[in-house]
């Protein structure tokens, strides 16, 4: 693997212009989608098979350092987790990790079992009815393999979305968060920057101005696969109970003779 690439989305610089969302749609040729009413500017409510970048608009009364209303703007995207639930769940190997550390779905291999959809702790992966396959942000795989940054980062006018080597971006991000804290944003925090943190770190990580749940992000996302061992043991345990029961009943019937 070559040096890991990342996207750093600094929500403190986001102005909610949605250039990223549109650039993503345009570059990836994602089609038309009838929006639902979300109560405000945000469309759509969640990631879909045609919306890989999604700018969230969150009204937070009292959320500004001076106590004013905050309108939290955040361009959300697939996190390209170092430990990716979707990738682990994929039974066909369609979901793979590139040499840059990004997570991608090979559309020619995916058979649409949709297990990855529910395995993503962030609800990123979506099922496309017309292709019958799972879809999500590709980190503009075609672009990064041709020396270009992702379309969303390219389109961002305020450098809220930065693209580069992960280690460099993490350093930048840490400095930025300190600065914001000094400016009075007491809840400013990085989300997914720490490679020792949850999911082994996110290759698309964020600077948030409020706690993650405010942005519809889990506070402490975990790999769904963590359940496999416990549940399997439970299964074996219950199998033993049931097996014993069945065994006993047949033993009893075997002993009982014709009257049983």
């Amino acid at each position: 693997m070559v040096r890991t690439l990342a996207m750093f989305t600094d929500t403190s610089l986001c102005i909610g212009c949605r250039a990223c969302q549109v650039a993503c749609k345009q570059w990836n040729e994602l089609g038309l989608e009838v929006p639902e009413w979300t109560g405000g500017y945000q469309n759509h409510a969640h990631f879909t098979d045609k919306t890989y970048r999604l700018v969230r608009f969150i009204e937070e009364p009292g959320g500004k350092p001076n106590g004013d209303l905050a309108w939290l703007l955040m361009s959300d995207v697939c996190k390209h987790c170092a430990e990716a639930g979707c990738l682990d769940a994929c039974p066909t190997g369609a979901i793979y990790r590139t040499e840059y550390g990004t997570v991608n779905i090979n559309q020619d291999v995916c058979n649409g079992c949709r297990y990855c959809v529910s395995s993503c702790p962030f609800g990123v992966v979506s099922f496309n009815e017309s292709t019958g396959t799972a879809k999500k942000c590709t980190f503009c795989n075609d672009r990064i393999h041709n020396g270009l940054g992702p379309a969303c980062a390219k389109a961002c006018p305020t450098e809220s979305i930065q693209f580069g080597f992960r280690d460099e971006l993490v350093g930048k991000a840490a400095k930025r968060v300190e600065k914001l804290k000094a400016m009075g944003f007491k809840d400013a925090q990085l989300y997914g920057a720490d490679a020792k943190g949850f999911l082994g770190g996110l290759n698309a990580f964020f600077l948030l101005l409020a706690k993650p749940s405010t942005y519809d992000l889990p506070d402490n996302p975990r790999l769904p696969q963590r359940n496999v061992m416990v549940d399997s043991l439970l299964s074996i345990g219950s199998a033993l109970v049931v097996g014993l029961g069945v065994l006993l009943s047949f033993r009893e019937r075997g002993k009982g003779g014709p009257h049983a």
Binding site: V22, T38, Y41
Partner: peptide
């Protein structure tokens, strides 16, 4: 342009 027009519900 759908990609722009869909950004606002109505």
């Amino acid at each position: 342009l759908p990609m722009l027009a869909e950004l606002h519900h109505s």
